[in-house]
Design a protein around this nucleic acid. Sequence first.
DNA 1: CACTATTGATTGACGGATCAATCAATCACC
DNA 2: GGTGATTGATTGATCCGTCAATCAATAGTG
Lengths: 200, 200
Amino acid sequence: MIASANRPETRRRALIGAALCEISDRGSLDVTVAQIAARAGVSTALAHHYFGAKEDLILATMRHLLKEFGQKTAGELRMAPTPRARLSAIIRASFAPDQFHRATISAWLTFYAKALSSPAAARLLHVYQSRLRSNLIHALHGHMDRPAALRLADGIGALIDGVYLRAALASGPAKASAAIDLVEDYASLHLAHGPGEALS
Amino acid sequence: MIASANRPETRRRALIGAALCEISDRGSLDVTVAQIAARAGVSTALAHHYFGAKEDLILATMRHLLKEFGQKTAGELRMAPTPRARLSAIIRASFAPDQFHRATISAWLTFYAKALSSPAAARLLHVYQSRLRSNLIHALHGHMDRPAALRLADGIGALIDGVYLRAALASGPAKASAAIDLVEDYASLHLAHGPGEALS
DNA sequence: CACTATTGATTGACGGATCAATCAATCACC
DNA sequence: GGTGATTGATTGATCCGTCAATCAATAGTG
């Protein structure tokens, strides 16, 4: 038996992974700790031993997803020399294959729904949105004045979220390239043809 | 006493309204029939008497929202003479004040989440999306060829959904005019400057 | 019009099932 | 032998759906 197989950190990871699987499989946050524990191959009592309440396990699972996404974005950004390249890097990271597949997309949607009733979950999603927004503004500021950058960043952010939302409900497998083209198209058009009308 | 106050249809409407209130108040579909019944001022048994299972009451509540939205859209479209006006009418209807406020927006998000695990809910949302898409394509077809119209319709649809999603999590009150401007801006730009790049 | 029968609305109470969380008791390892 | 990992069993609470019983209104009958 591998010595690390029963170490706490390994168990934590296994439980988080199992939670993610169950959530996306069932398409709901109404997963029981018994289901999660069973998939992780441990007892329900152990899940409570490591995470305390069920809510904490769910939040830890969210943090895991958020962290993965943040690292992916940071990695793509590190290789982007120009502002325009940074913009594409952000878009590409948002639809990276390991993020943009059915299971993960479903999990995102359920977390968004949970944020409606869980302030803690709302806070987590807020930091993600803020980071995405900040990255977008930084990339766009090289091409337009700040108010225009703010507005376009909101548009691109909303479009990305909308594409995710629709992908979650679509029947077939999520097609990342089409999603990227859609958002890139939107961004390019706004970059090419100046700022839109002023908002009311 | 009003004669119609205790008629079946009145009770149905009251229960659906109560369900909507509870769902948006609690920000979750984890509402008990007891809560809904209490808000409607009846017993839990009566809720079951009229709707059978809890699921049926939830689905009836979804249908109510969908129907309201459909009627709003149809009304706006009826007054739009040109294709361009039809496009604006669709956008305007999507963010009509009686649809685009916190309670309704929250309900939409929870219904989207439910569709992940409930085929019946998924079907309902599918017909809504199909109708929106069909309306958009019809309006756009007057300005571009069919493939371009299909693509732009998908983009506008995703953007609308994304704006809703973000409004659900935003703290302040939903600002319809900003949302309309954002989507109108997107549409106008694509109408003015031809079709985007071909998709892969 | 009186008087009863029938239907439907409505409720309180309850059974059965589920689930989160706890606890005392093992187990493994240093 | 002591410390932490692990578990089976249990508890307390919640909730859905059902059932028997009540009440109001309507219809039918002479």
